[in-house]
Design a protein around this nucleic acid. Structure first.
Lengths: 186, 186
DNA sequence: CTTCGACCTGTCACTACTGACATGTCGAAA
DNA sequence: TTTCGACATGTCAGTAGTGACAGGTCGAAG
């Protein structure tokens, strides 16, 4: 029984527990899933994941359910882990994203010439449009009734789609604003 | 002359340089500015900032332009610092946000009852609506021609506004989807 | 029967960030 | 003239995250 549960609000922990609710898996397996489905939501490196699994096991939130060839350790979520995950999902308010490099740059666009500033914003619009195309492509690819991850995964996909639409529209508008301000001064 | 410039893509560095383009300031001053204007874009703690100023000075991107009472050190950006900032703004593509705790939770909403899942989504809609109200309030407060930060700051504000609108609409839609799926099964 | 790619776990050094602690000084109001 | 709030700098231990290094094994195709 370890006395200190490690700090709250740490999402790698919950991402790992969440993936394990879909069935037991090794660190190696989980790493694939992180890359396949969570890459754009909560990426994790190999070193981080193996470390996390160790902590999770020490805290009793997962157990080594089976050992296989090549030193494979198959982890399974415990009832305590499951309770922790549900607690996090239902009772802990999500922390909003605090940092945006894209917006930070906007604050300092005044250092550039208006032309360069517009170029930056136009580029944002282009990138957002490209992302949109990729996402729409992806949406057609996803099997509508494959696995339970797909059910709520579609909601996440829709979010990303709407986000990229918003970003494109905003960037186009902002580039226009810059042009307008420029004309006003001249 | 230090041989190693510290790693690229580190935004606290550029946030600090950016703030210093508005005039010389002490660590203390900068900390206020971080809290006032960059809090929702790139927050920084005191310990981080003082450390950063030290590194920036060692790298020659800022200098101690004046020393005042209470050990006050007034930092000013150097031509090298200014060049670095412009390089970052104009030539280095911004890294997209990779992590979203909010979306991570969406992936695991299947662990909860559909009612709880809908509650989560409804809460997101509510929070987004509240944020929107605050932002609109803030928009009326901002002096339209105060300081150069305000010019591009307005673009950032508009982004936040559009983001919160998007989030609210998405969450409302998603809660509806969950209800629909629930009815489909019953 | 070899060999090679996929499988599999682990460690290390380093950077970024956080919150708390420690330590003082100046200036204005009481 | 005291005292207190704002000014001001710095350090430290700890967590999170990254990329590289290191080492080993199984299974199937050639």
């Amino acid at each position: 029984m370890s006395m200190m549960n490690y700090a709250a609000g740490v999402s790698l922990k919950h991402a790992t527990l969440g993936l394990l609710t879909y069935g037991p898996a090794s660190g190696y397996d989980l790493l694939q899933k992180f890359r396949e489905s969570l890459a754009n939501v909560w990426p994790a490196t190999q070193s981080q994941l193996y470390g996390e699994l160790g902590k999770l096991a020490a805290a009793g939130l997962v157990t080594v359910a089976a050992e296989g060839p090549r030193g494979r350790k198959e982890y399974a979520i415990t009832p305590e882990g499951s309770a922790e995950l549900r607690h996090w999902l239902g009772e802990v308010p999500p922390a909003p994203n605090r940092r945006s490099e894209m917006l930070l740059r906007v604050f300092f666009l005044g250092m550039l010439t208006p032309e360069q500033a517009r170029e930056y914003l136009d580029d944002r619009a282009t990138v957002a449009a490209e992302l949109q195309a990729e996402l729409r492509e992806l949406a057609t690819t996803v099997d509508p009734d494959s696995g339970p991850l797909a059910v709520y995964g579609r909601l996440a996909l829709e979010w990303a789609l709407r986000f990229s639409v918003m970003q494109e529209e905003w960037a186009t508008w902002a580039a226009d604003e810059v042009r307008r301000a420029q004309e006003g001064v001249e």
